[in-house]
Design a protein around this nucleic acid. Structure first.
Lengths: 164, 164
DNA sequence: GTTATTTCCCTGTTCGGACAGCTAACGATG
DNA sequence: CATCGTTAGCTGTCCGAACAGGGAAATAAC
């Protein structure tokens, strides 16, 4: 996996400002999603870097810890990932010592992915990071506002899922 | 640039379902953002593919059309991108014939990026795609709901921008 | 004018993501 | 048993994104 490079002194930084030039009718919600997603991902990345992980790997590990050792194909489906992406992610996590690959006893095509004992040290750290990320995202919002945010996002998700 | 592979029969597909296992308190808003962003990006990708572009390139071209030829460093800053990413994006768009690189007359370090006449054919197509994407995102929402969505996203963006 | 600093762009590298192609193994059918 | 179609996983390729490092030019400081 190779530990992500430590933050190079300069934290990612707020990049740029408005992506929507002037009075351009450019799909306001759509672009807002892009901007929020970008910032969210950047923050996630800089938090995870401190734990030695790249964005995406933490979800894989959380899944393994939550539901135990699983077939690689299972992980791929559950995380909605690509099989090639999964192959390489597992390889990196294996090199990093967070995961072990065991031949599936009942299907010689398959591979069981299990978290190592060493990886347990990461779990608390990741949960803390998820907490920090959520807090940074919704800090300053009332309970009601947070509920509204969740409702809006769920609505958008449902919309987009239909067009996928 | 090499035209994106044509959709291989199967459109990206809704990938997986819930990423949040069971009753796990896992940063609900945060994960909702991740899911929405994922779907949004997938849809954007499949729409853009038909125009022969990859996600991200369309924003660059729109910027060029809107504000005219610009220094590469200007584009990088305005789009909040990475200079390396910009270098390669421009190279691909140049190979694809959508962009021309002209040495900056007042600063021999600089490069002016200008859209080609041929690229104009793309513009309407991209605007149409942005419209489709927006529609897919907010279809079925009332005007009031759309305003709420925008307000929520702006709020989240402001929050995240502070922590960046 | 010479030197130091900054800016601009390029290349190399690593990651996640997506698609295509391949092999080995499984399953079912004839 | 032999064949056919499917599934699991790996590798190659291309893209966007981010960081590191380098070289050239412009600018500031001396």
């Amino acid at each position: 996996m190779t530990t992500p490079r430590p933050p190079s002194g300069k934290e990612p930084g707020p990049t740029a400002g408005p992506v929507c030039p002037a009075g351009l009718r450019c799909g306001p919600v759509s672009h807002a999603i892009t901007r929020v997603a970008r910032l969210h991902r950047m923050l996630e990345g800089s938090l995870l870097r401190r734990a030695g992980l790249h964005p995406g790997q933490e979800a894989l590990m959380m899944h393994l810890w939550e539901t135990g050792a699983q077939r690689q194909s299972e992980l791929t489906a559950l995380l909605g990932s690509d099989s090639a992406t999964m192959t390489r992610a597992v390889q990196r996590l294996e090199r990093a010592g967070f995961v072990r690959r065991v031949p599936c006893p009942t299907d010689r095509r398959g591979v069981i992915i299990e978290p190592t004992a060493a990886s347990q040290a990461l779990r608390q750290e990741i949960e803390e990071i998820w907490w920090q990320l959520e807090e940074a995202t919704v800090s300053g919002l009332t309970e009601e506002e947070r509920a509204t945010a969740l409702r809006v996002l769920d609505r958008l998700e449902a919309n987009l899922a239909n067009r996928a």
